[in-house]
Write a protein that binds this DNA or RNA. Structure first.
Lengths: 205, 205
DNA sequence: TTAAAACTGTACCTGAGGTACAGTAGAACA
DNA sequence: TGTTCTACTGTACCTCAGGTACAGTTTTAA
């Protein structure tokens, strides 16, 4: 194991453990002691990797968005193979996303972006901007295909394509909250399916 | 001023101040000192009204759900006057809700239910159950009317009426998160309008 | 074998959350 | 008018979390 790998695995372990605790206790509700106990590391070790909690927050958001984008790209890559039709690509993506959630062993862990939004004053401008840029990336993923779809299909609503693109994020965030409250992934799966149904009804041949 | 009124106004002031700070800093991120400074009260005064932070949390959720239900009932009462058609009642409600959000001076303050969901381990079973019951009340508000609507209209999707009822909560919670990230109520208004559009397209005469 | 990276261990400071309780202002009631 | 209770204020104190600092130890690459 190289030095880099050793470092990365410890750093990654800290981030992974921190994220899972934070999603259930909030950022302020999670102590560094909580994190180091579960990551099997000492306080000194923690501060070797991160200058403090603020730096951890930034690293967590960066890591979360990277992981998320990787998954989204994979799902869209698979769906893009199936069809050239932009609407079918989106619907394929949503079906794959729903299946992925259905196959989770436990309730969806939650979204760091949403969690941090309800504690936004704890973070500096930089982290808040990272979050905003992250959501804009999700928007773009859908907006591009929805705009192409609106050329081939007749759109049955006046609401902007941008808002319809954001509706994915909205349904997922809303669905996650419902799933956490009801302690079942069904709610999230259903909200994603409902977004799919909306697109099916709003774009007619 | 009666004794009761004096008490109630102080207690109410504490709750109101606490809610607004908590929605921006999280529950754990909000200190009792933060609350008492902004509520112009001493620590002793705070502990006269609440036995501690846990009791405050419970009171906050109870108060939030009561206020929320009062607003929802008012909006539905107004819409129920306009029409006997259950679908039109819901659409009237959504339009009024959207207008209410549009008329807010500042960005929507956020939803305590969503905020607490991302810090759920900080609260005991009782508070978590209060939150769950609150969401079930919102579900019922829509489900009753949607079921009646499904008798008069042809429903264009297989997804359950319950999930369509929960979609209101989902769109609002998702819309609030988007609005907070983009620092504009437009996103929330649009997501509510999109739910309206979904219902319009899903229920055909 | 050496030097740097990746830690451990300890000690210490500040401030938040919370407890306890004695004292006091003001309304209500007799 | 004085009494009494509610609704506080003020103070003092305890514990633990967040964070700092840094010296010492192990691990790894060259």
């Amino acid at each position: 194991m190289s030095v880099t790998a050793r470092t990365e695995s410890t750093r990654e372990r800290i981030l992974s453990v921190a994220e899972s605790i934070i999603l259930n206790n909030g950022f302020s509700g999670t102590s560094i002691d909580d994190i180091i106990k579960n990551a099997a590391i000492t306080k000194g070790g923690f501060f070797y990797h991160f200058n403090g909690k603020k730096e951890l927050a930034k690293a967590l958001v960066e890591r979360y968005l990277e992981q998320d984008n990787r998954i989204f790209e994979e799902l869209f890559f698979a769906s893009d193979q199936d069809s050239d039709d932009p609407l079918k690509q989106i619907i394929g993506f949503l079906d794959r996303f729903a299946t992925m959630v259905e196959n989770l062993d436990e309730t969806h862990p939650g979204c760091l972006v949403a969690g941090f939004t309800y504690e936004s004053q704890q973070f500096d401008e930089e982290v808040q901007d990272l979050i905003k840029q992250g959501v804009l990336v999700w928007r773009k993923l859908f907006q591009l295909r929805l705009e192409r779809a609106s050329e081939q299909y007749s759109l049955q609503t006046d609401i902007s394509i941008t808002a319809i693109a954001d509706m994915f994020t909205s349904c997922v965030e809303g669905g996650i909250i419902l799933s956490r409250i009801f302690k079942s992934n069904d709610a999230l799966v259903q909200q994603v399916q409902l977004y799919r149904e909306f697109l099916r009804l709003a774009f007619v041949a």
